[in-house]
Design a protein around this nucleic acid. Structure first.
Length: 266
DNA sequence: ATGACGGATCTAATCCGA
């Protein structure tokens, strides 16, 4: 069986619901994981997803900021969220799907951006980001015999080829050594595989986010790979395709992040 | 500075994103 799972930081699901519907009609993912829905649970456009067959919905939102949601054509079991850093914000939701003979946990994450200054003493947002990552180290990719997928906006571009200029971004939050090293430690601790880089060679420049502030985003191409799809090692052989929809950044009133679709065969 | 746009909010100016 083929299963397509997508992740997309939508930057307000209410504002962009028509765009999301077009995306779903065209690409037909089985599961879509959204970040930055920026609404409360009762404001989530559930009916629009229902109409397109995404009747299983794990929504974890709050007023104005953050918020994650996983919508699916396949049944979602064991829905829960973990309150990382005990801040009461909405940056994680998990669920379990059945695919072939596998049970797969799907962790949908929105890691804190971390503010401007890469200094934990002077910038509490940066400290929050690193604390959040520390807690993510406790997540094992293989748990109780279940496989896992961890995806979302992790707000870190770990490789030199994940940013437009490694040298110029070394002191910019999202690509500082302490962030990329900690993210690598999270991957190692949980035994996670970077599925996007399994499919697209690490030597190749690859971005999923382009700032609203740079006009002519495509020609300037000053992007970063902030969005990720990881899995437990056993699922690497099930991966058949990764599609980063770069064109979505050029749509009318776009999100600053583009969708990424992973296709598996189970 | 990469670099001043774009979203939500007690609709006006402020906070936040990364």
């Amino acid at each position: 069986m083929s299963v397509k799972i997508a992740t997309w930081n939508i930057n307000s699901v209410r504002l962009r619901i028509d765009m999301v519907k077009e995306f779903l009609k065209e690409h037909q993912p089985d599961i879509l994981c959204l970040q930055e829905i920026k609404c409360q649970n009762d404001q989530f456009p559930a009916a629009a997803f229902n109409e397109l067959g995404y009747e299983y919905q794990a929504v974890h939102g709050q007023k104005g900021y953050h918020g994650v949601a996983t919508v699916s054509k396949l049944p979602l079991a064991a829905v829960s969220s973990t309150d990382y850093c005990a801040k009461g914000d909405t940056r994680h939701v998990e669920c379990v799907i059945a695919a072939g003979d596998k049970k797969i946990k799907i962790h949908n994450f929105y890691v804190p951006a971390g503010g401007d200054e890469a200094n934990v003493e002077t910038n509490p947002k940066f400290a929050h980001k690193l604390d959040f990552l520390e807690e993510m180290k406790d997540l094992d990719s293989v748990n109780d015999g279940a496989s896992s997928i961890l995806l979302g906006d992790l707000n870190i571009a770990p490789l030199e080829t994940d940013v437009w200029s490694h040298k110029q971004l070394l002191k910019v939050v999202s690509h500082t050594p302490v962030e990329t090293e900690t993210l690598n430690a999270v991957m190692a601790a949980g035994g996670w595989a970077d599925l996007i880089r399994h499919h697209i060679p690490p030597e190749e420049k690859l971005f999923t986010w382009w700032s609203y502030r740079s006009r002519d985003w495509s020609n300037a191409d000053k992007g970063r790979r902030l969005d990720h799809i990881w899995s437990s090692p056993d699922l690497v052989e099930n991966l058949v395709n990764i599609n980063v929809l770069r064109d979505a950044r050029g749509w009318v009133k776009p999100s600053d992040h583009v969708p990424i679709i992973a296709e598996f065969n189970f």
